[in-house]
Structure formats: C-alpha cells, structure tokens
Design a protein around this nucleic acid. Structure first.
Length: 834
RNA sequence: GGGCGAGUGGCGGAACGGCAGACGCGCCGGCCUUAGGAGCCGGUGUCGCAAGACGUGCGAGUUCGAAUCUCGCCUCGCCCACCA
C-alpha cells in the first residue's frame, strides 16, 4: 500500500468529519432559498405527500423523527425526480393537555400551545426535514377554526351535524364526553388519560358518519395497509340479515321488531328478549311482573358499561309477563328483558333461538326455557349440552314446517321472502358503527357556532359573525366545568331569527374535527374568504401518500374519510377519498425493548443525539433500524455504525489532490466492477425508497461505500469510474442524509443544490453484471459454483456443471435424471432414483 | 371467543419458490497511539483439526428445490369483543 492510499493519510488532508461545522449552515440556506416551497403554478406533475401533524405537546421525541423522516425521504426523492412536491406541516393546536397545563400551572392554554409550537418547529428544522413552512396550519388559530365553524354550519344545514340525546361515554377525570372510538380496551378507558369511562345520558352534538358506513367499507382504488382496512371494516361491523316483526298479545301495541342474521332459525325462536331500555318494556309488562321488571331496569341502568359488557358474567333477566306470537310457528312465546341485549345495536330486541346461539342457550338453560334445534347436518347429529352454532356445508332445516329439508343458506332468503310477503319482515343491514359524538365540554377547542333562543331554539350563527372567537380572559380554576359556562361575555348572544337574547353553545368541537380537513387547508393556507379554494384543492388532492400511526385506524383515519365524502356531497371537494395511499410507521422502542417513557428512563432525546452525531446520522440510523412499518428498539451503539459510515463517505468523497493515483494492471476490470456496483445500486435504492424499505436502501448505500473504499485502496481514486461512483452515491444519499450530501457535493465543486439535481438513472449496460456466479445444486443442495458470462449457452452451462468434481461425487458415474436450469440463477442436477 | 400480524446468528435485521444470515451492532485478533470508551484492517451461524455434516418456532404436505406456498399445532404482539 502506498503512502498516498493509506486511509489515515488522506484523512489528515481532508479534515475531520464533524457535522456540526456544516449542518446548520445548509439548513439556513435551504430555508432562505425556499427549496421546499410547492408552487401552485408549477407545471411539473404534482405530488402531495403528507405526514400526520403532531400535537404540540412541547418536545419532538425520537418517534416524531422516525415518523417524519420516512415520508421526508420519499418527498425528497420525488423532488429530485422532477415532480412538484407538496410536503406541508402544521400543528394540531387544540386539546386537553393545554387546558390541563393551564389548570396545573396557571399558564394560559394559548401561551402554552404557541410556546410548544415554537420549540417543536425549531426541532423539526433541526431534522433537516423538507417541509414547506409557508403552508403551515395551526388549528387553534382563529383564521383556521373560523372556517371549521363555517364547515360545521354546512354540515348542520345538510343534517350531517345534529343535536340529540344519547347514552355517551364520559371520562370522569377529564370531565368530557368521548366518541366510542376514543374508548379503549376491555376495561373501557379514556384514550387520553386511561381513566375508566362511565355511561351518561346527555344531549350532545353528533356527526352523521353512519350515513357513510357502507361507502367507508369500500377500499377500492385506495392503497391502505391490510390491518387498517380490517380494523375499519370490523369497526363499522356490517351485518346482513332480516328485521322481523313479532306481534304481541297486548291490544293497540306495535309489534316487536327484531334484527337477526339468522332468519333461517326462526322456527327455533322460543322466546324474545328486549333490552331493559327498550321503549315497549313499560307498555308490555303485566301488573304482577311490574315490581320485578322495574327493579331490574333500575339495576341495569346503574350497572357500569364494564359490568354489562363483561361476557364472563352469568346471564340475568326477568320475565315481563307478556307474550309474543312467532310469525312462522304461531306459537305464544314469552317476552323477557335482559341486559345482554344492548339498546344501541339492531332494534334493541331479539328473537331468542337458544339452539343456535350461545348466549340464548345460556339464558334458556338458566331460566328453563325451551330449546328447539331447527338446523342440522345431513347426518342429523345434534350436539348435547350446547348450542349448534358452527356451520356445515350440508346443513339443512329440520322441524321447520314447509322449509324442512331446505339448505340453511337458502332458507335465509326463502324465510325472509315469505315474511316479507306477509308484511312481517324484510331484508335488513345493521352496523355496529354509531354516529360520531362531536361536542366536548371543554374550553380549549373550536367553539360550536350555535346559539339558543328561548323562542327559536338552536340557531346557527350567521356566517358574517364568524369566527365565534374563544375568549382569552377565562378562569381556569378546576371547577370541573368548562370555563366558557361562566364567561358572561361569551354566553351572551343574539338570536339571528328574532334579534332577542340568546345563549351561546359552550361545547367545543372534538379535536378530531380539526384534523378531519387540515389536509385541505394546506392547499389554500391563506384563503380568507373560504376554508379552501376549489381550484387549489382540485389541483392538489387527493393526497398521493399519507403516513402516520396505526393507532388512528378507527379514529382520525375514519373521520377524515367521512369528512372528505361529506364535503364532496356538499359540493366543496371533487374527490371521494382523502388519500390514495396510506402507510403506517412502526414504533421506536427504548433500548430495553419497552415503550419509551419517562418513568422507565429509556427515553432518547433527539436534540442530544444531534449535538453528538449530527442530524444526518440520527435520520439514517432511525431508518436503518428495521422495516419502517415495523419500528424497533433504539440501539445506543447502533448509531455509531451509521456515524462511521458517514465518516467513510466523508473521506472517500474528498476531492482528489494532485495527480491521480497510479493505476496498475487490472485497473480496467476494477473500474468496470465499480461502475457495475454504482449502477446496480441506483436501481436498488430507488426501488427501496419507493417501497419504504429505507433499511435496505441504506445497506445498499453502505455496500457501495465499501466498494468505493476498496477501489480507492486498489488505486482507483481520481479515475472517472471513481468520481462517478462518489457523485452517484451522494445523489442517492441526498434524500436520507441531506446535509452531508450537500456539503460534499459542494466540496467537489458541483453546482448548488444537490437537492435540485436530477435523480440518477442507471445505465442498464453497467447495471447488468459482466459475469455471474451460478450456484450448482445436486438434488437441491449447494455443491459448487460456476462463474460464467450471462450469455453462456445453457448446454455449455450444463456441460460445466456435470463436469464438476463436486457434482460427479454425487452422481457416481451415472447420468443425471434431470438437469434444471433457471437462466441466470442456478443449475440443479437431479440424481437418478435408486 | 373473533380478526390481523410476526417467529431467521449473541443483537437489529437481509433473502422475485433458487447460494440462508446482505448491511450494521456486539465480540475476537491485529494496526496506529503517551493513552483509547477515538480511528483503521481482518475474522465471526453451530459442530468439526479437516473433509464435511447440521441449521430459519414444532409437525406434516406440495416441489427438482421451501425461511418463503398449503394444512395442523405452539409462542408472542396488536385490534375487536354478550353486536343478535
């Protein structure tokens, strides 16, 4: 090895790799030059890439870096590929933590929120992420929420927002109602604070999301991860079946309507069960049963939702004394009430078929009610001691009048049709999904633009009076009620209908309303005459790529689809879906494989890491940990490896000084090998980034770096192939490690900015290998390798393979039974069977 | 109970049905240093001196060939759950 090529020597010339000396400089310059501004009048093809905006909790944690670096890389590559990329950022400004900070520490929520936003904006700049800050949206700003109020009024006019009584989930700690989607786990905890929720009957604002249940089940034409589709589908919970009317014996009482997915089992319906809350309960209950029924209803009301939904609990219920008529058998069947029938699902009443439903079976056994099997496999074998719920292909109806012998699948339709002809039933679809409770009894949110007049009731605030501004001078003493309720100046309003005195709505909107349309506001961030302009929305929407956490599967990711469809029906947008493609990042865990939390002491603060390693190393290491959608544990030593890699790139890319290195014999082949490595890396990295495989993209870049280093040691530094390799390496690194790529690009005398250079294209001739190594297998086991040129004829390869002594050993002189060749991939010699 | 994922070296992870373990961490050895918790070079699946054998949670199957496809188990994670 000559002195010139000794690694240490060139390092001394180049100076130490120290990101702190150049990273801040480039960030300032990129920002000053508005390198990432997306312009409406740009003729290049648009690409709208969006990552979920953060809640301004105060600090950007490593998880934010992880979530945002992925889409930033994709956005940067697409920019270099000549597209007009919009990659905006904003803040989810409203929310409870701000209000809690006010209560705990006496800071106004606005002050707390905007201070946090300032800090987080600074931290995001530190990441070197290419956000278009000119489009920033802050949802707690009146210029934003004014238009949210405007949209609310459009929803209200269209009947998509309405006020109604309902049994809602209530968090006793946050003193606020929650949407069903915001209640988590078997023990039904508040999604924010983890407190078990209670059920309360309250008058609330709702969004009619259920109008769109069917459409929300349709994922055609959009690319969502399978788990998200499954979760949304389960959440919406579509069931097909029938609604059937069971007349009662009482005079002048409407029949009991039930929903069932198993109309084929109606001949086995031996009793009925109503939810305790069912409106017919007081009407139907006989005098002698009244005391028992009322006691049960009262107890059911007191029981918590947790108790009630506990499937382990033994069934309870009481007889009402009343009877219904099974419309198919004309039998009198008793009507019971029980809390395992839920008031909010289906019709709140069921026909109980104990032979074919486990819950009904349990109930019938406990209360000694008849159990009649009406479906059986062809063998006629019926279970004992349990319900028959599983299906067999040959099952048929038994003991079912004229339908006896009919396959059950056919009977579902036949029986429903028969009931329909008699006016006693119809095909029906039911959903688990309920409407979205949109109001919150809190201060720090978007005020609902409604006033209440003694005479005219709820009245929308006229558009000209928007925004209804959140007053700043409020008292945050923890009284448990929204400070808006005691703010006279806010409460006092005028009825738009009569001009008389009115009282303002004090509920504010769920913060998920804010995030249901922010992506549209990014298209028209400065519009002051509308929430957004149709031409700009038409130009940018739909989002081409949306990224964020999977924990929003049935919350934000359902709500923003609903909003988009509702806005389409209001004529405000022209798309059916907000985004064409969704990707979820995984979670970064602590080094101990646990979730990062202050109490565990395993939290990695990004600012410290940047100070020590630079932003590029943090970005690259996070992306290198594993598949982006999988996440993984932070490794305090792993980042050293990425740092070392950047150091190797740094030294390899320093411009050659003086005469180029002496090139010895064989240099031509070495140069060709380096070119092959370079050009095959272009294709690999491009595909990997497109598919969110940042970990393998980086490993390919490391491998190319290793090839470059070896070629330098072989004396190639300064050669054409070497310079090309370095420059392509820098271009491919630019999206991932933007600072070092820019710095080295400049040091090599290339024009500013590397981020505005065209993305490299592989030369197919170089990308193709000159020689390939073919594995030779005998009976599928590797025995030898052949080095051949790609155009070697198959007969020649077969001859070489059979000539191999390693192959001969297994053939023992016999001719092979078969020789399988996969061109360019392998040869497999199959030995004859003895 | 239902749905969806995932099980590969000491670790994070690679691998269009075709060379298992790319790339990196760690570890071992060496170089350079007054020094090394810096940097650089080499080695590193297991067993074996070697030739070689064995290896992707377990068990079957399909195939010339299976980490990959099929079936049945086991384990872990996430979501939903008295939804008629």
């Amino acid at each position: 090895m000559t002195t010139e090529t000794r690694p240490g020597a060139s390092r001394e010339r180049a100076g130490r790799f120290d990101p702190a000396t150049f990273e801040p400089k480039w960030r300032q310059r990129w920002e000053a030059d508005q390198l990432y501004a997306a312009r409406d009048d740009d003729p290049r093809p648009k690409r709208y890439i969006l990552t979920m905006y953060p809640y301004p909790s105060g600090d950007l944690h490593i998880g934010h870096w992880y979530a945002m670096t992925g889409p930033d890389i994709v956005a940067r590559m697409h920019r270099m590929q000549g597209e007009n990329v919009m990659f905006p950022m904003g803040f989810d400004g409203f929310g409870l933590p701000a209000e809690n900070a006010a209560i705990d520490r006496g800071i106004h929520p606005a002050e707390w929120t905007y201070a946090n936003i300032d800090n987080m904006r600074r931290q995001m700049r530190l990441m070197g992420a290419g956000f278009d800050w000119a489009r920033e949206v802050v949802t707690c700003d009146p210029s934003y929420y004014r238009w949210q109020q405007w949209l609310f009024l459009k929803f209200y006019e269209a009947g998509l927002a309405y006020k109604a009584m309902g049994a809602v989930d209530w968090c006793p700690k946050d003193k606020v109602v929650l949407a069903r989607e915001q209640v988590e786990g078997t023990d039904r905890r508040c999604w924010r604070c983890g407190t078990p929720v209670e059920k309360r009957d309250l008058e609330q604002w709702w969004f009619r999301i259920t109008n769109y249940s069917d459409e929300l089940l349709n994922f055609e034409g959009i690319d969502y991860p399978e788990p998200i589709k499954a979760m949304q589908t389960n959440w919406i919970g579509r069931s097909e079946g029938a609604e059937i009317d069971f007349p009662t014996e009482a005079d002048d009482v409407e029949p009991i309507r039930v929903f069932t997915t198993r109309p084929d089992t109606i001949f086995g319906a031996t009793f009925m069960v109503l939810a305790p809350e069912h409106p017919l309960v007081p009407v139907l209950t006989t005098e002698d049963r009244k005391a028992d029924v009322e006691a049960y209803v009262a107890a059911a009301r007191r029981a918590t939702e947790i108790d009630r939904l506990n499937t382990e609990r033994e069934k309870t219920g009481v007889f009402t004394g009343a009877y219904a008529i099974n419309p198919m058998t004309n039998e009198r069947i008793p009507i019971w009430i029980a809390d395992y029938v839920l008031p909010g699902y289906g019709t709140g009443a069921i026909m109980a078929v104990p032979a074919h439903d486990e819950r009904d079976y349990e109930f019938a056994t406990k209360f000694d009610l008849p159990i009649r099997y009406v479906v059986a496999p062809a063998s006629g074998e019926l279970p004992t001691g349990r319900a028959l719920v599983e299906h067999t292909a040959d099952e048929v109806l038994i003991d079912s009048g004229e339908f006896t012998g009919m396959p059950a699948s056919e009977a579902i339709r036949a029986i429903t049709r028969a009931l329909e002809e008699r006016g006693q039933g119809s095909f029906a679809v039911t959903y688990r999904q309920r409407d979205w409770v949109a109001g919150r009894q809190r201060y720090w949110g978007c005020p609902i633009p409604i006033v209440y007049c003694e005479q005219h009731g709820a009245q929308p605030v006229p558009e000209s009076e928007l925004p209804v501004v959140l007053p700043m001078d409020v008292d945050f003493s923890p009284t448990g009620v929204s400070p808006l309720q005691s703010h006279e100046g806010f409460l006092k309003a005028t009825c738009p209908a009569c001009g008389g005195p009115a009282r303002r709505e004090t509920d504010t909107m769920d913060t998920f309303v804010d995030s249901s349309w922010y992506f549209l506001r990014y298209c028209s961030p400065n519009a002051d005459d509308a929430p957004f302009h149709r031409d700009q929305v038409d130009a940018w929407m739909p989002i081409d790529l949306y990224t964020g956490g999977a924990e929003h599967a049935v919350m934000h990711l359902l709500y923003f689809r609903f909003f988009t469809k509702a806005l389409r029906d209001l004529g405000l947008v022209g798309v059916d879906e907000p985004t064409l493609k969704l990707r979820n990042q995984g979670q970064i865990l602590g080094a101990d494989h646990n979730r990062m939390s202050k109490s565990r002491g395993n939290v990695q603060a990004p600012d410290e890491l940047v100070a020590r390693y630079g932003a590029d190393a943090v970005r690259a290491f996070l992306m290198f940990i594993g598949p982006w959608d999988q996440g993984g544990p932070w490794s305090p030593t792993g980042i050293d490896g990425v740092h070392r890699w950047l150091g190797r790139v740094w030294h390899a890319a320093q411009p050659a000084e003086g005469p180029s290195e002496p090139i010895g014999p064989g240099a031509d082949a070495l140069q060709r090998a380096l070119r092959h490595a370079t050009h095959s890396t272009i294709d690999g990295v491009t595909e990997d980034i497109e598919d969110f495989r940042f970990n393998t993209a980086i490993s390919k870049l490391m491998a190319l770096t290793n090839a470059i280093t070896r070629s330098r040691e072989a004396g190639l530094a300064g050669s054409e192939a070497y310079d090309e390799a370095i420059e392509i390496l820098l271009l491919l690194m630019a999206p991932i490690t933007p600072h070092i790529a820019e710095e080295l690009w400049e040091r090599r005398g290339k024009p500013y900015s590397i981020h505005q250079q065209p993305w490299p294209m592989a030369d197919p001739e170089w990308a193709a290998a000159e020689t390939i190594e073919l594995p030779v297998q005998v009976d599928g086991k590797l025995r030898d390798r052949l080095v051949v040129t790609p155009d070697t004829p198959a007969e020649e390869i077969e001859r070489m393979a059979l000539a191999s002594e390693h192959v001969q050993r297994y053939l023992n002189g016999r001719p092979p039974a078969r020789v399988i060749q996969i061109p360019g991939r392998l040869v497999n010699v199959v030995t004859p069977k003895d």
